[in-house]
Amino acid sequence: MPDSHPWKGRNVTGSPAVSPTAQQPLDLVPDALLAGRAADGDTAAFEALARRHGPLMRATARRLTGTLADADDVVQESLMQAWKQLDQLRDPAAVKSWLLRIVGTRSIDHLRKRRNHLALDDLENHVDAPSGQRTQDPESTAVNASRVDALKSALTLLPEEQRRCWVLKEFNDLSYEEIALTLNISPASVRGRLARARIALARTMEEWR
């Protein structure tokens, strides 16, 4: 884990013996312990988990929903749901992939809600398009960009279902079964969509090389 917090606490000699105030000391506590404590109602432990896995949750939600603003809504909703359902977490050590699965489900809900408010065209233009180049040929637009940027563009051109499978696999390292549960499709569909996504992306990247 990144150890980036700016200050480290130490008890004052002679001060009343009280527990440390801030969440920082929990940064070193393993996931399983934190998840167990959080399930017991320890909010500081829950917040430490949120801080630890928040960046990956945010990055995932961003690729799934298209924008950072949507991603923050999704992360907040996901954490809320996680807090309410912590008692259903069977394996506290697996809290990270459990959180990421919730992010996957809520990202898709988030998009579905929006789809009901916007015309499909608006949605398609809104989702992803990191450089507003969605309608253009990725080969010509990406020619001066880095390979990572080219991948970003190629991702936006994938059918949504394929992109979801790819993000949940490559970003979150979920198993086919976990992705299947998250997307409410069969593991065989996950396998097929993931393969199609990779073939399309690999082809674009090879052409671009």
Binding site: E77, M80, W83, D109, K113, N116, H117
Partner: peptide, 16 residues
Amino acid sequence: PLWQSVAGAAVAAVTG
């Protein structure tokens, strides 16, 4: 409060 409507959110998502 939002958390009370989490269960209802699925319905709201479908109906918009």
